[in-house]
Amino acid sequence: MRCIAFHFFAACIVGGCLGTSSADAASLRRTSVLHHPQVRLSDLFNGITADQDCDLGPAPAPGQSLTISAPQLQAIAQQYGIDWPEMSELAQATLTRASHTVSHDDIMPLIVDGLKAKGVSDSATIDVTNFSGPTVAAELANSPRLSNIVYDAAHGRFSAFFSITSDNDTQSFRADGTVSSRVEAVTARTDLSAGQIIEQSDVEIAEIDSRSLPARAILDPADIIGQSTRRAIRAHTPLTSEMTSRIDLIEKGSPVILDVSSSGLHLTASGVALDSGAQGERIHVLNPTSRMIVVGQIIDRTRVAVTPGTTPTPADFKDLRSAGVRPQKNI
């Protein structure tokens, strides 16, 4: 501080305004907050007229203070013809440069716009972690400028790089943070035991923070219904494809019941599966009586619901033999 005050005093002696005409008695301003880059005579004394006022030297750095001691104040008053009747050896003046610290609110609009330009949705949650912005002169601080933003979409992380100009000096700084959104994923409704066949009642849809969503998470219940758990799973755990394995409820060649619904009518017929499949999957089924092949969705281990709108196709010799049905003999 003494070194700063010395340089300031030297600047007052060699620079600034030369001499001024005496004016009415002035009084010392013991504390002043500066909103300009130069210390002015009126920052030290009250009662300075406009034609007397002039720059004395550089102001302290933003947020910093400078104390002017009694000898320095006396020398300044004498040099510039200030009538200071209260001159005292104990007098001192403290000058503080007004400052502004770049805050979270200053940079968030820029981060949001930058991330949206990279494809981040409006519904995403953007968080800045452990941000500490630079301190700049309050009167000269421009708005921060976003120089670049690096976004890792796979891990939901970003780094934003900024610059801000103050006192003809440009400072660079960065802010790091995360991007998350709420994703609808399939979770276990209750505890599931190892080897359990998953049914619709065993799962539910829950909104999960994308940052905690596991890789290969199941988003559609249809992708997991009818599969078997590889291990025990606790309730409310997000399910992944690695937690389950596909189990064929119906094996190729197995007898099944065809459920046919049309125009309010419900009919059943016997059939033979031409494919193996898990619950919810579509397979080809032969109707041995009509010798026609239909496509249906597996309901359980014995039933297949014929897909509405599909057209039955005649079975060829290979299909009939695969189903154990004797082909008709030509007469």
Rank of each mutant, 00 (worst) to 15 (best):
R231S: 02
T170M: 06
M1D: 03
G309S: 07
S254L: 02
V256H: 08
S210N: 06
N148I: 05
F131P: 07
I205K: 11
R211G: 05
G309L: 07
S276W: 06
S212M: 08
S99Q: 12
E207G: 09
T67E: 05
D167T: 01
T178H: 11
L286Q: 07
N168F: 01
S143T: 13
G280Y: 13
A61E: 14
R211Q: 13
V136L: 09
N148G: 06
A77C: 05
G47F: 04
E184P: 04
V33I: 12
R2N: 11
T244Q: 09
I68G: 07
G280C: 00
S180K: 00
A305Q: 13
N287I: 00
S262A: 15
I225E: 01
G264C: 13
I111L: 02
L320Q: 06
D105S: 15
S241M: 05
P134V: 06
S143F: 03
N148V: 06
H35V: 00
A217R: 04
D220L: 00
T268L: 14
A11H: 07
V128T: 05
G280R: 07
S270V: 08
Q74R: 09
E89A: 10
A175S: 14
C54H: 15
V304P: 09
R326G: 10
V256C: 04
K116P: 00
R301C: 04
V150S: 15
H7M: 08
A93I: 05
D248V: 03
D24R: 09
T307L: 14
A124Q: 10
D106F: 11
M87T: 13
